[in-house]
Nucleic acid binder design. Structure first.
Length: 195
DNA sequence: AAAACCCGCAACCGCCATCGC
DNA sequence: AGCGATGGCGGTTGCGGGTTT
């Protein structure tokens, strides 16, 4: 399943008045099966009544989230690709933290997945960086925020969040070439786009 | 070997918008 | 118009595994 050993974890329950014994915490395999089977037979929607009808002691919200983020058959598994990484950066720069909107541009990926990816892999590096070229990159990126989807690559703009060290790789001082640290190699945007 | 620390991610929380009555 | 139910979204938390010391 999710590799987190959710089948025997200490699932919490809460008693909140009339909504007795609502389960919280990690989903079990049995719950997943119930939810998948129920949606397979009846379809999605009206999550609170779905949860009740299916016999799940979960909130509708919890069922919806589990379905959308983990059980949907059209979910794309595996690591974020280089192209997806660039797309996330591009769209985040353009739209900000509109994760659901960004996710709609990336079939098979969820807003939660993209949000987590951004926070753990990219934002972390943004915070590490306060170099001048980093600041310039942000400014340039915002200035270009309404242009085409490939403007970052076209403009040769660094997304410094992807650099292990926020340094310019060449030193000609005219047209800085920026590189992305990916799979232990440095790549240009053009190279990554063509992968 | 084991304790401490770090990291990734599933799931929850709180807020807001929308809808139907 | 008001209100409750529901859905959607972004932010946050906490667990478990991996890594470092």
């Amino acid at each position: 399943m999710d590799g987190k050993g959710n089948s025997n974890m200490s699932n919490k329950s809460v008693n909140s008045g009339e909504e007795a014994d609502v389960r919280k915490g990690p989903w079990t395999m049995e719950e997943d099966l119930i939810l998948v089977n129920y949606i397979g037979n009846h379809g999605e929607g009206v999550w609170n009544s779905l949860a009740r009808s299916a016999g799940l002691k979960r909130t509708g919200k919890s069922c919806r989230l589990r379905w959308l983020n983990y059980l949907r058959p059209d979910l794309r598994r595996g690591n974020i690709t280089a192209q997806e990484q660039l797309l996330i950066m591009e769209l985040q720069a353009r739209w900000g933290n509109r994760w659901s909107k960004i996710a709609r541009q990336m079939p098979g990926r969820t807003d939660n997945e993209i949000k987590n990816y951004w926070r753990t892999r990219i934002q972390k590096r943004v915070k590490q960086s306060d170099s001048p070229q980093f600041q310039n990159a942000i400014l340039i990126d915002e200035a270009n925020s309404s242009t085409s989807q490939t403007h970052i690559a076209d403009a040769g703009i660094v997304q410094p969040s992807l650099l292990d060290e926020p340094t310019i790789m060449n030193t000609d001082g005219i047209e800085p070439q920026f590189f992305i640290d990916f799979n232990d190699n440095f790549w240009t945007f053009e190279e990554l786009w063509s992968m």
